[in-house]
Design a binder for these strands. Sequence first.
DNA 1: AGAATAACAGAACGCTCGTTCTGCTACAAG
DNA 2: CTTGTAGCAGAACGAGCGTTCTGTTATTCT
Lengths: 185, 185
Amino acid sequence: MEVFWAHGYEATSLQQLVQKTGASRQSIYSDFGGKRELFLAALERYQEEVVSPALSPVEQAEATLPAVETYFHYQIGRAETAGLPGPGCLIANTITEVAPHDVEIYERVNAHNERLFLGFSKAFENEIRTDNRRRHAAPNFDALATMTVIFAQGLWSTSRVVNDAAQLYLAVDHFLNMVKLELAR
Amino acid sequence: MEVFWAHGYEATSLQQLVQKTGASRQSIYSDFGGKRELFLAALERYQEEVVSPALSPVEQAEATLPAVETYFHYQIGRAETAGLPGPGCLIANTITEVAPHDVEIYERVNAHNERLFLGFSKAFENEIRTDNRRRHAAPNFDALATMTVIFAQGLWSTSRVVNDAAQLYLAVDHFLNMVKLELAR
DNA sequence: AGAATAACAGAACGCTCGTTCTGCTACAAG
DNA sequence: CTTGTAGCAGAACGAGCGTTCTGTTATTCT
């Protein structure tokens, strides 16, 4: 998984995969079917081992804005300890490299984006239900959530070429503060 | 240029390049030096032919927020007429695929990001200089501009897997509206 | 017109890729 | 101990890659 994460799909060779996983070429083919299927399995493992723990605060039923902040800080923290510039997000990288040319992978990354979208959207809803002030207009949760998914995408892309985590933290904090203002309007 | 844009660096073969450009293999090597150098030339041409026209409103000395909006709308419009999901942004794709493994390319995409950063930052400054109301605190232009660069990055990534331009427009409008609120605070 | 030069298509080269095949090793069952 | 089987490393294979080489065709200049 880590090899695909760092180097992408095309640039990762069977040789590297055999070396880093310790498995034999033969078992990669008998257990998975080939390089592409191994990549699909890596995508799934990435969801379980990286996305789910990071996103769990957001996916709590009562999650609000601080949960979203926790998600971003958690991921930036991981990137920071792994060293910046880093591998970013496997799924964000896949969106750029493979998704446009492979429908099955395309569907999986879209499912991931949908998952982010739902989490953010719910958290924003919960945020304004914690008080019951009257507002100028009901916020467009869908648009805000889509916007946040796009921002997350950009954040992990940027983490591949930036060496200062402080920039990322600062950008995230400003972004979430703006969302907070928008929700309180 | 268009081939690299759509398929990326690794996935574009010399054969494709010869076919699409009409040039011979020989002249690619005598005129540029190889595939990598041709890619660098494509990056440069992309800056001139795609980035510069799109960014020109933002790079006017008196540019303000509407100029930034024009930039985003212009680019989304181009993506829309080319067909969504589309190739996104050559430089955004390069950041994900090649930049981490090639210092020269890394420097060029960072120069591009710096260009965006400066444009946005200046536009935000101009925006609040158009009136002279007193504010709670001076906005952090650097953080806002960094955030906007990251958002743009995410937008072009997302345009590779999304088929509805309306979503992108909506997200951009909300984003810029939030920036406007933040600047007017 | 004839000589020199440039540009060309395509063959050829060495290499690496993903995939498959081939023995060999090690362990389990009887 | 013998037999059967599963898993392994590494060789082998065809395909495709980026790059270079090789003739041949245009073009230019005197």
